[in-house]
Computed example of a mutant assay.
Amino acid sequence: MNPSTSRAHSKRHSILNTLALSRSFQKVNDKFGHLIGDELLRKTAEALKVPPR
């Protein structure tokens, strides 16, 4: 796979994961409330941070 194709595939994969996660977070918000959902989003974002190269 050439670098351009690899980047496009990676971006598509990231977008699909984001959409799937957003549905999951909506379920958390609906069941436990927005305070819990917001905290889960913050913790998830922190866990997904990429370390500097």
Rank of each mutant, 00 (worst) to 15 (best):
M1I: 07
D30A: 13
N29P: 03
D30E: 15
L41V: 04
I36R: 02
R23I: 09
F32K: 04
K11I: 03
H9D: 14
A8H: 02
A47L: 09
G37N: 00
G33S: 11
H13K: 06
R7M: 12
P3G: 07
S4H: 05
N2Y: 10
T18G: 04
K43Q: 15
H34W: 08
S4R: 08
R7Y: 02
M1V: 12
D30S: 09
R7D: 06
K43G: 03
H34Q: 13
D30I: 05
A20S: 10
S14Q: 15
L21N: 07
M1T: 09
K43D: 13
L21A: 14
S22G: 00
P51E: 11
G37T: 03
P51K: 06
E39A: 11
P3H: 14
N2G: 15
L48P: 02
V50F: 12
T44G: 04
P3F: 15
L48F: 13
A45M: 04
S24E: 06
L16N: 14
L35Y: 06
L21F: 15
F32I: 02
G37L: 00
V50S: 05
A20V: 01
I15E: 14
F25A: 00
R12K: 14
P51S: 15
S6P: 02
S22L: 09
G33P: 01
G33F: 02
T5I: 04
P52Q: 05
S24W: 07
F32N: 05
K11L: 10
P51L: 08
V28D: 02
V28C: 04
R53E: 11
G37C: 08
V50C: 09
D30P: 03
